[in-house]
Design a protein around this nucleic acid. Structure first.
Lengths: 162, 162
DNA sequence: ACATTCCATGGATCGCCTTGATCGCAAAAT
DNA sequence: ATTTTGCGATCAAGGCGATCCATGGAATGT
């Protein structure tokens, strides 16, 4: 992993439809080695997958709700079951176990408040929860799947920018 | 937009490298009309872009921090400047304006706590904020870019499953 | 000096994207 | 009942781009 790999990743995070030849040109390589690097990073699992990103408005999921959850039971079994149940809901798009006073945090996407209420009822019907509090996002100012690559660990620390 | 389109979107959200022919087979179409539907959905902006998703661990950003921000000044100008400044940080991967007692919520990805502290200092050096509180995620139980398509508005409500 | 590694280049194959044209079916409209 | 309209199926064909191989050269390390 050097800065060429990083440059490739940067571009593929933005647009994975880029032809290898174009990518190579932008990176400053010829197509063959560029292609090989991509292959390697896919094998190594650095590149997980390539997906299509949809417009939330167009698919009628414009509302994001953050759901903070506190629980009584802190057993492994409960966590396992809780994870499974929550994972089944396609509205739950992110799901974290937290430190601090909140135990779990969900990001839920739905068309509107009414749909959130319906989701909420379905959720608590499936599993017991001590305390739930919902915070509604009024606006999504930034959302990106691009991870910062500045922290990547590179093999060689040669000169160069980017 | 009918259930065939939805089926196509479902598959492309999982894997955008699928060949049109394979996609068509899975959906129950022949390649040409399937390809045309995809084109249309790209033109219409339903499909925004195709991107590569990376492994957070492999690119050294395993830690997620949720940053809750309260502000004094609630002017449009402040919001504009704040948005710009925050948007410049690649570590900020999501950024919402919230209702309720928190004004803004950020999701920040970094390698470790130390890096978060450095990020935090850089942030408050750039802009004045009344109150900041950080919540660390111990575990990412679920993360998906797939939006639920069950709420999609379809042209025809014919019979069928999926 | 030699081995290793990585790149550039060229070529060659093959799959699939992309497009156009034509036909058929089914629903809707007149 | 007939016509119109709107898909989809099928066939065909051009062409781009992915994929792989083979060779030569440059830089690095031992």
């Amino acid at each position: 992993m050097d800065r060429l790999d990083r440059k490739i990743l940067r571009l593929l995070q933005e647009d994975s439809t880029l032809a290898v030849a174009d990518l190579a040109k932008k990176v400053g390589l010829s197509t063959t080695p560029c292609w090989r690097r991509i292959q390697k990073m896919e094998e190594d699992g650095v590149i997980r997958r390539r997906v299509a990103l949809l417009d939330p408005v167009k698919v009628n999921t414009r509302v994001t709700v953050f759901v903070s959850i506190r629980t009584n039971t802190h057993s492994i079994e409960w966590l396992k079951r809780f994870s499974e149940v929550v994972g089944e809901f396609p509205e739950v798009v992110e799901f974290y176990r937290m430190s601090g006073d909140v135990d779990y945090l969900l990001r839920v996407v739905v068309p509107d408040i009414a749909a959130y209420d319906a989701f909420y009822k379905r959720l608590i019907a499936r599993i017991e929860i001590r305390d739930v509090s919902s915070a509604f996002a009024m606006e999504q100012i930034k959302y990106t799947t691009e991870l910062p690559l500045d922290y990547m660990i590179l093999d060689t620390q040669k000169s160069g920018e980017d």
